[in-house]
Design a protein around this nucleic acid. Structure first.
Length: 560
RNA sequence: UGGGGAGUCGCCAAGUGGUAAGGCAACGGGCUUUGGUCCCGUCACUCAAAGGUUCGAAUCCUUUCUCCCCAGCCA
């Protein structure tokens, strides 16, 4: 690891305290336990970095375990995507790839033990009845009439449940705890339900499936997990997990809860993300606007940026919402160091250099990455007809605008100073092209007479440039908290209709020829862009804008 | 009005009785062939509030307030 300082947060503090002097004798085990019912998102990345990170730092191990206890929602596609995303993030679970479904038999035996101890019973109440018997937040529940069944009858019935003698939902196995507990999780929670649904791993072997509450803690115990790190909402499930573990007399992991990640202007709910995909509000789980790992990867995020982000946000128990700008800071930081700079004009404006010889052309030297001189230089072709960015020319310049305007001089990066002499418009008054003169003495970008220019702009040579499509992204939602809506509304009301802007007719410098999906560049002055997989078999390259560069001019402009 | 958590700068977050780290954002300035990067500076007399203990409190005690989670045979 490249971190110099020892990482510290309340979880690591607890572990250090537990370890105490026995630092070298105790082995610590963590686990990342996703349910394969959707793709991983940046919130999962936080949990992954925590669990794998801790295991690494304390010389322990981190298991990957799929909590696949609900076959109606889980699919193989999801387990594959989850494995791919964790690997991409740079973590390795080695041989420790487990599934709660691996423990179905063991869990069944555990259930038998509880029944024999009189701590679990088969209940014939319907789902509705169970709900009403449970009581409310402020009033205790009442006991099921089946609570007093004999151990023998429970054993028989539970066996019959497994053998498929009953219809789906007809009976359940419940823990016999306390119907008047102020903690609703302790009011005889359900351990098994009858569900005739094919499981992605066990097929049709089972028609009863353990609930998460029954499977999770025991799975951790079976795997000898020492720290079961989970999110806050499981805090009041902990007494239940403790109860099961103690009733069974098996290894007792220590559960520690932390606050899940929230990000402004997006949503971390798998339910919502699934709906976005299914209802086609986005192009898929890997839509570059999605906060999913696969979406961020396609957008151009790097594993390093995500890991740095996860490390810097910290871990605590206070609900928090991280500013999207914080995430963007880390991708800029990483890409600034790594990417080659290149010139690309997104919204072209034709420039004709009246005093440049027609038919002539030359090759100019450009630096690939000023942050990394080792990255070298490249040649960029120059000629009489160029394209510059429409936004770099203003007919009536704002007082703080110091780019091109009629009569003004700017530098073309790595090329020459040019001065605008004329604007040509069509009959509708739309600017079609501009004419400029160039100063041959300023080749390379410096004026021998020492005169300065206020701006340097990017450009491409029209005849040498490559066509491209660029996809510009904005927040998926307009509201800082998309789930916060008016009465009766839902997240769809907060969808940002302008979150994707597709720009065609962009022109790129020719060095980009042959760029492959996933390749990342900084388009000078415009932002970081990466080649989208959609450009695979097309003439025209397609780029995703990962993030803009910081832009003071944009701030001035919007401030008026 | 039951139970479980949490409240330190706009957003995160250190701090755990000795007199408020750091990052992001913001705002000034320097540098600049990217209005990028980089560099410098500003940004909590105050820690949800009110009392109390103490020489001394964000840290201890009391009371109050606010927010989040729990009534799936979801996880």
């Amino acid at each position: 690891m490249d971190e110099i300082a020892e990482k510290s947060d309340f979880i690591r503090d607890i572990i250090r305290e537990d370890l105490g002097k026995s630092k070298n004798t105790k082995k610590i085990y963590t686990r990342f336990p996703p349910e394969p019912n959707g793709y991983l998102h940046i919130g999962h990345a936080k949990a992954i970095c925590l669990n794998f990170g801790i295991a690494e730092e304390f010389n322990g191990k981190c298991n990957l375990r799929f909590d696949d206890t609900n076959p109606t929602k889980e699919e193989l596609e999801y387990v594959q995507s989850i494995k791919k995303d964790i690997k991409w993030l740079g973590f390795d679970w080695g041989q420790q790839e487990y599934y709660a479904s691996d423990y179905f038999e063991k869990l069944f035996e555990f259930a038998l033990i509880l029944i024999k101890k009189g701590k679990a019973y088969v209940c014939d109440l319907s789902a509705d009845e169970i709900r009403s018997y449970r009581g409310t937040l402020t009033s205790p529940g009442i006991q099921s009439p089946y609570r007093g069944r004999s151990i023998e009858e429970n054993l028989l019935l539970f066996g019959q449940m497994r053998d498929g003698l009953f219809a789906d939902g007809e009976r359940v196995l419940r823990a016999k705890i306390d119907m008047s507990s102020p903690n609703l999780n302790m009011r005889d929670p359900i351990m098994y339900r009858i569900l005739r649904s094919s499981h992605h791993r066990t097929g049709d072997k089972w028609c009863i499936y353990p609930t998460y509450d029954w499977a999770h803690g025991q799975s951790d115990s079976i795997e000898n997990i020492t720290y079961s790190i989970c999110t806050l909402e499981f805090e009041d499930h902990r007494p239940l997990y403790d109860w099961f573990i103690e009733a069974l007399g098996i290894h007792h992991p220590r559960q520690i809860e932390f606050a899940r990640l929230n990000l402004t202007y997006t949503v971390m709910s798998k339910r919502v993300l699934l709906e976005m995909v299914e209802k086609k509000y986005v192009s898929g789980w890997d839509d570059p606007r999605m906060p999913t790992i696969t979406g961020m990867r396609r957008r151009g995020y790097t594993p390093q940026a995500i890991r740095n982000f996860c490390q810097q946000i910290g871990v605590s128990k206070a609900d928090s919402t991280i500013d999207m700008a914080f995430l963007e800071h880390f991708i800029r930081e990483d890409l600034n160091k790594k990417t080659h700079r290149v010139m690309g004009v997104i919204k072209p404006l034709k420039v004709i250099l009246d005093n440049y010889p027609a038919g002539a052309q030359e090759e100019l030297d450009a630096i690939n990455n000023p942050e990394d001189i080792e990255a070298g230089t490249r040649k960029v072709p120059f000629s009489k007809t160029l394209y510059i960015e429409q936004d770099d020319f203003m007919e009536d310049p704002h007082p703080k605008f110091y780019r091109l305007s009629v009569g003004r001089e700017v530098r073309l990066r790595y090329a020459y100073f040019i001065r605008c002499t004329e604007v040509v418009k069509d009959k509708d008054g739309k600017i079609v092209e501009i004419h400029c003169s160039y100063d041959p003495l300023t080749k390379g970008g410096d004026a021998p007479d020492g005169r300065k220019v206020k701006a340097t702009i990017h450009w491409v040579s029209a005849e040498h440039s490559l066509p491209a499509e660029v996809r510009l992204y904005a927040n998926l939602f307009n509201n800082i908290n998309p789930l916060k809506t008016e009465e009766g509304g839902n997240f769809k009301d907060n969808l940002n209709p302008d979150s994707l802007q597709t720009v065609k007719g962009c022109r790129l410098e020719p060095s980009l020829r042959g760029a492959k999906p996933g390749d990342t560049y900084q388009f000078e002055r415009m932002g970081y862009f990466c080649v989208d997989p959609d450009s695979q078999n097309q003439e025209t390259l397609i780029f995703n804008r990962t993030v803009t560069l910081k832009d003071d001019w944009a701030k001035i402009k919007t401030a008026g």
